[in-house]
């Protein structure tokens, strides 16, 4: 059952990702990306990481993608004709095929390689309490760096977007 759900959500996530890139309509792309995020959050839930799954839904699929949709609608983007010519397209096919072959080789080798034994998840793994505990003990430094990182990102975004300095 779990395996079935994994494959189902995994394939759906892949489909949504590829379709998002291929779609020419920005709104369709954004909606497909929401679908992708949703599938990812389902995968997190399958991994017992419930907090991450909920956060993924709330923050990414919810807040950020709604913002993206708003921006797309406010900008009122038109469909644009692609500038890819025939010649480049054939090159792309060759490139994708070569890369695909490479990835297939690596993946098939990895499939036959023995995986290290996974440790059983500790009791309460993935809950808010467990994540919070670890954030304020072992991971307190990365936690703080993340706050500085977000501040730098905000300053940068405002800097680039502000009309007059």
């Amino acid at each position: 059952m779990e395996l079935l759900m994994f494959y189902g959500f995994g394939l759906l996530a892949l489909f949504a990702g590829v379709a998002m890139i291929l779609s020419r309509q920005p709104v369709t792309s954004a909606l497909l990306m929401i679908l992708n995020m949703f599938c990812l959050s389902a995968l997190y839930a399958l991994l017992d990481a419930h907090l991450i799954a909920v956060l993924q839904l709330l923050v990414y699929a919810g807040a950020i993608m709604v913002l993206v949709l708003f921006v797309i609608m406010l900008l009122n983007l038109r469909e644009k004709k692609g500038i890819i010519t025939k010649h480049q397209a054939s090159l792309q096919v060759v490139g994708v095929a070569a890369f695909g072959f490479f990835v297939m080789t690596v993946v098939s080798r990895l499939n036959t390689a023995a995986l290290p034994k996974s440790k059983a998840a500790s009791a309460g793994f993935g809950t808010v309490e467990a994540v919070g505990r670890i954030l304020f003990t072992d991971y307190v430094l990365p936690f703080e760096i993340a706050s500085v990182l977000l501040l730098a990102a905000i300053v940068g975004a405002v800097m680039l977007a502000k009309s007059k300095v």
């Binding site: 430094l141 990365p142 760096i145 990182l149 730098a152 990102a153 940068g156 975004a157």
Partner: peptide, 16 residues
């Protein structure tokens, strides 16, 4: 963890 966050802090500032 620290490596990745440091790298991102550096990169995001550099992009801007």
């Amino acid at each position: 963890m620290t490596l990745f966050l440091g790298l991102e802090l550096l990169s995001i500032s550099l992009y801007v």
